[in-house]
Computed example of a mutant assay.
Amino acid sequence: MSSGPSSVSSVGFDAWREAISSAFVPLIASPESPVASFRGALDSTTLGDVQLSEVIGDRSRVRRSPAMIRSADPGVVKVGLQLSGHSTVHQDGRCAVLTPGDLAVYDTSVEYDLDLADSFDMLVAVVPRAALRVADRELTDATARTIGTAAGVGSLLRPLMLSLRAGAAGAGSGVAASLVEDAVADLVSALIRSSAPIQALGAGETILLSARTFIEANLDDPGLSPAVVAAHHHVSVRYLQKLFAYDGLSVATFIRQRRLDRCRRDLADPAQRHRSIGAVSASHGLVDASHFSRLFRQTYGLSPRQFREVNGLADV
């Protein structure tokens, strides 16, 4: 078996099974080798709302059952990077065979099986579904597919995950964690979009992707609205709303969420502490300071001023 994280001692199967269910989501685990000889280890860190875990163990099988999903569904997506050994991810009627260097995406809200064929070392990023800018259909089309890391988005995500494993302690809180969280969520979103088969993206999905990109590029425009986005794409507002409904969001809600996300990031950034709260919100298209303050509190449970204080930044 690969040597575990230097700061974590290997444990027996029962302790390992409890550890992975506690760190991730409730899981059914069974060893494929004698229980008495099984050794495993788990090392986890959090970066904002993103969790990064290195999982090591001997031959085993891990399952996420429908009953477990019904009892506990935190709404997170996993991205596994095989470091050593071999494994197979089964989900949505597909299977992804992973060799060292390969990635796979799997959704904890849908049942899956993970067959760990031999002693293994896997790095797993756990990202909130709400942080990913992908439609439900895109996620379903991208799960349980073998994703290489020699080129494309995989070649960007792999070194990021490895560097975070090596130096995560320096990005565990505050603005660093927030920026890292954004970077991981953006790359995982891009990975999901790029992994779906081309034929899976019909005209509607293509417009949806383009509309999201257009919104991201124009969040600073106070006049950005569903009508503006629809006109840019030569479709009706009603049709655009129908496309966004795949994610359970309206166009206006998506715009508002992305603006608030940008404001939250800047308000936690020490480099932005000289800017007033009103200047930060206006730079992302939210020009009414009192309205922004209400939205921010409703979304994050703190006023913008309190959020800055929690992050160790005095209000300007």
Rank of each mutant, 00 (worst) to 15 (best):
272 Q>A: 10
158 R>P: 04
293 S>M: 03
72 A>S: 15
274 H>I: 12
228 V>I: 14
246 Y>R: 08
206 T>M: 04
258 R>W: 11
87 S>G: 14
229 V>K: 01
167 G>M: 01
178 S>A: 15
308 R>M: 08
236 S>H: 10
75 G>L: 09
271 A>F: 11
314 A>K: 13
38 F>A: 08
67 A>W: 07
190 A>M: 09
238 R>Q: 14
296 F>I: 02
38 F>C: 08
227 A>H: 12
231 A>F: 06
117 A>K: 14
95 C>G: 04
292 F>S: 04
270 P>V: 10
93 G>W: 01
49 D>W: 04
81 L>E: 12
159 P>Q: 00
240 L>F: 06
173 S>D: 08
262 R>T: 06
263 C>M: 04
118 D>A: 08
292 F>A: 06
71 S>N: 15
302 L>H: 02
210 S>Y: 05
300 Y>A: 02
305 R>Q: 15
295 L>G: 11
158 R>E: 14
98 L>W: 13
71 S>T: 12
286 L>D: 10
55 V>H: 12
170 G>Y: 14
264 R>C: 06
47 L>A: 02
103 L>Q: 05
215 I>G: 06
249 L>G: 03
71 S>Q: 15
201 L>G: 00
188 V>W: 03
123 L>T: 08
270 P>A: 09
79 V>I: 12
242 K>N: 04
301 G>I: 13
82 Q>D: 10
8 V>T: 13
287 V>E: 07
123 L>F: 02
134 V>I: 10
170 G>S: 14
79 V>L: 05
51 Q>E: 10
316 V>C: 04
